[in-house]
Nucleic acid binder design. Sequence first.
DNA 1: TATTGTTATACTCTATAACTATA
DNA 2: TATAGTTATAGAGTATAACAATA
Lengths: 145, 145
Amino acid sequence: MNNPLADHPGFLLRGAARYWTTLLSRRLLPLNLSVTEASILMVIHHNPGISQVAIGRFLNVQRANMAPLVHSLLQHGWIHAFKVDGRTQGLGVTDEGKRLVGHIETVFGDHRRDILSAVPEDMRAFVIPLLSAMVTHEEILNQVS
Amino acid sequence: MNNPLADHPGFLLRGAARYWTTLLSRRLLPLNLSVTEASILMVIHHNPGISQVAIGRFLNVQRANMAPLVHSLLQHGWIHAFKVDGRTQGLGVTDEGKRLVGHIETVFGDHRRDILSAVPEDMRAFVIPLLSAMVTHEEILNQVS
DNA sequence: TATTGTTATACTCTATAACTATA
DNA sequence: TATAGTTATAGAGTATAACAATA
């Protein structure tokens, strides 16, 4: 098989992201959480009082799609909301939510370790800086859309 | 903003893949091609006589989803099909398709260059081997699904 | 005027199941 | 029995537009 895409970083990027995202969503299945829901809980936990729009901006989730996600987390009792001003609500993780965050941190940690150990040891230190460099232009797209 | 996902390779991977895939699909808009359609044309061009199932296996596209994609490329006259045996058809790029492949190669080349130049020069040589290492486990998922 | 949050909706991508015809 | 190709369909994930309430 002659592979014309083997040296295309975009193709490899898509393949890697798809593989590891699928694996992570399977790992979160026992917690009944999607990757995005788990990420939202982590972001709220580390940024108590954050608004759902700010979370969406950070995780690349549209305002319109944040509404049902936050609603679901509220209904499960994992997060709570309080008024910041008339239009903005701050979010925080409840005690029950904090137990769940503990489980998420374990899953995320395992997942992180597995990705890194797939990379040969001599390149492992470059993973985070290299991938970080490839997402730095994110704002440009957000402007356009 | 306290970012609990900044050092998570999976999160960075998803962000990078999404950004560059969105950009690539915009670059292919003038050719009226999706990223997958353009990739299929490239794979056929470099592997004349390949079957659509083999393409799907390589590009991670289900048999069921390959059918309409190939049908569309046939209807546009960019590829042609010939019987290999009673159930398999080999695919090839037509002369008209080859002109299109030339444009795709230009777009893919520009895109490849842009991704690489987003990475600091001292890490650039690691991009392909590092990303390749992160997709090597692809088969495992294919077994499960 | 700009922003938060919401609803409704559409579109793309991906997944599953069932079927035929062939090997 | 296994594989190639097809159809139909369902489910995520994502995108757009419009609206009310508030800054």
